[in-house]
Amino acid sequence: MRWINRRPSRGATLVLHCLPFALLIVAYLIGSAIRLEANPNDKLLPSLATLADTVNRMAFQPDPRTGDYLLWSDTAASLWRLFAGLGISTALALVIGLLIGLLPVMRATLAPFIAFVSMVPPLALLPILFIVMGLGEASKIALIVIGVAPILIRDLSLSAQALPREQIVKAETLSASTWLIGLRVVLPQVLPRLLTSLRLQLGPAFLFLIAAEAISADSGLGYRIFLVRRYLSMDVIFPYVAWITLLAVIGDRLIDLARRRVFPWSELEGAR
C-alpha cells in the first residue's frame, strides 16, 4: 500500500504521539549522564534527581526569604498579567475589529492606521512604556496589548469582511438594522475565529510577557528565569520553561474546547 494511504491504528497513534517526547527525554538523560560523568559539578544538564529536588523546593517549600511558594506565586503573577493583557486585547479587537469589518466609514478611518500600528515592533516600544507607565504592572500588560491587539483586530475585521455579502443583504431583507447585523449576524460568526486567533496569539503573548518580566519585575515566571540565569541554575530554568510551555498548551486546548462547545456549528463541514 502507498504510504499516503497508510493510517496508524489508535494504539499506534498514541505511541507515535509519545515518541518524539520520549526521544527528547532520552537524549537529555544521555547527555546529562555523559556530562555529569566528566564533571559531577556540571550545571548545564542537571540530573533527574537534581531537577526533582529543585521542583520540590520551588513548588512545595516556602521560600525562606519571603515565605512564598515561588513557582505558584510566579505563576499567579504571570498569569494575571497574561489574562489582563489578552482580555484587554480581545475586548479591543471585538469593538474595533467589528467596527472596521462592518462600517465602510470606520474602515476608511481606522484600517490603514491599525495596519500601520501592527507593524511597530512592540519590543522596541518597551523602553518607552517603562518610562511613561513606570516599572509596575501597567507597562507589562500594555506591552502584551500592543503586541497582540493589532493582530487580533486585523484578523477579526478581515474575517468580518470575508462573510459573504449575500448574508448581509439577506439580513437587511429580514429587517435587520446595522446594529442588529453586527450583533446577530457578524459577531456570532466571527467569535469562533476570534478564539482561534487568540489561540495563535498565546505564544506571542507569552513572549512579550517574559520579555517585560525579564527587564523589570519582582515576581513572575520570566523574572525567575532571568534571575537564576546569573547563577547558571539550569535546574530551575528547565522546569520553568517546561511549565510555561505546559501552561500555553493547556490554554490553547481550553480555548479550542470552549470554541467547540459554544459554537458547535463552527465545526461542521462547509459551515463557512
Partner: peptide, 19 residues
C-alpha cells in the same frame, strides 16, 4: 436605496445563516 423587508431574496448559496 437599500434592501428592506418588503423584498425577500433567495440566492443559489449563502441564503441562510450557518450559525
Amino acid at each position: 436605496p437599500e434592501p428592506g423587508p418588503d423584498r425577500g431574496v433567495v440566492y443559489q448559496r449563502y441564503s441562510v445563516f450557518p450559525h
